[in-house]
């Protein structure tokens, strides 16, 4: 069933996954803390691209789902096992995505973008209102998980996202989404239930972001709305995914890794000019690599092939 080239891809992916998953055994604590950031954004950007890549709907709701997951973990940590909370966060994330999707995915273009941007603020205000009514303050998530534990949970979640993404690409659903992305009217006329397909993918994306939030709650220890629902997160995810390229499953990860390393370099060496340097980096990205690293890599491959052909 699996063609030779795909088998090769699967083997390479598995080896890379094992190398990444074993980081706590050979990397320093510092590398591990960088690794958590990379793993977190890889999971978020890849799951974002699963939905936004084929459909071209730009979602800014990542922070809403992430915060929902963080709060699920924060509220339940005293009563439920952590594994259950991660699963519950996924279910709640998917549920919220379904609600939002059914209400808004019939909208297109800028309306959808604006709604998703508002969603994080909406959820945040609901939680703040709840706190204000009950006098409930910030939540403490005190656990015995080490950074290595959390990192490996994220890598496992990342592996699951890649697997799901790969399966969707091979399925009728993936095919339907690519048609929707090319021309939604044509897709509808071909008998594709466009709303259902979009909502399903949005649910996957929302569930993954919520699970990521739940996994990271023990790292933040203290959870309050301003920290859990920071809108910057949504934008960072979009930028990293676009930097990598959203037309390939492996695209976002080649954006996340250099972006995180550049950001780390900047904040370590120029702590007073972080925002300025991030702005310059964005300009460089937009001007020099508009199709993302994935596009650049493919372009270089084509170029070297055509040179081989010439000689």
């Amino acid at each position: 069933m699996i063609a030779g080239k795909e088998l090769q891809g699967v083997i390479v992916a598995t080896i890379l996954l094992l190398i990444a998953g074993a980081l706590p055994y050979y990397g320093s604590d510092y590398l591990l803390s960088l690794g958590i950031t990379i793993a977190m954004f890889t999971v978020l950007a890849t799951s974002w691209a699963l939905f936004s890549g084929p459909t071209h709907y730009i979602s800014l709701a990542t922070a809403a789902f992430f915060g929902l997951g963080t709060y699920t973990a924060g509220l339940g940590i005293e009563t439920l096992p952590f594994w259950v909370l991660i699963g519950l966060a996924g279910v709640l994330g998917a549920g919220l995505a379904a609600l939002v999707g059914l209400a808004t995915l019939r909208l297109s273009g800028v309306y959808f973008v604006i709604f998703t941007l508002g969603l994080a603020e909406l959820v945040r205000q609901v939680i703040t209102w709840g706190q204000n009514m009950t006098g409930q303050k910030g939540l403490y998530v005190l656990t015995d998980f080490t950074e290595a534990n959390l990192y490996q949970m994220l890598v496992a979640l990342g592996a699951a996202v890649f697997l799901v993404g790969w399966l969707i690409n091979r399925s009728r659903l993936g095919f339907a989404l690519r048609i929707i992305g090319d021309d939604e009217t044509v897709a509808a006329h071909s008998g594709i239930n466009t709303a259902l397909a979009k909502v399903l993918l949005f649910m996957v994306s929302g569930a993954v972001a919520a699970m990521t939030g739940a996994i990271l709650a023990p790292r933040y220890v203290y959870i309050e709305p301003a920290l859990a629902f920071t809108p910057l997160l949504s934008f960072q995810v979009v930028i990293m995914a676009l930097l990598g390229g959203v037309h390939r499953l492996w695209g976002p990860i080649v954006g996340v890794i250099p972006f995180t390393i550049i950001l780390e370099t900047i904040s370590a060496n120029f702590p007073n000019q972080v925002t300025l340097f991030i702005g310059i980096v964005f300009l460089v990205i937009v001007y020099f690599i508009p199709r993302g690293f994935a596009g650049l890599i493919e372009q270089m491959r084509d170029w070297s092939r055509s040179r081989e052909g010439l000689t």
Binding site: Y30, S33, R219, Y220, L227, E264, S267, A268, P271
Partner: peptide, 22 residues
């Protein structure tokens, strides 16, 4: 050695880690 955490707890954690180990 000064670091800006950008009012983001993830950055605070990274910066403390960097100070301690790097």
């Amino acid at each position: 050695i000064e670091y800006d955490d950008q009012t983001n707890p993830g950055e605070t954690i990274k910066a403390v880690q960097r100070l301690a180990t790097q």
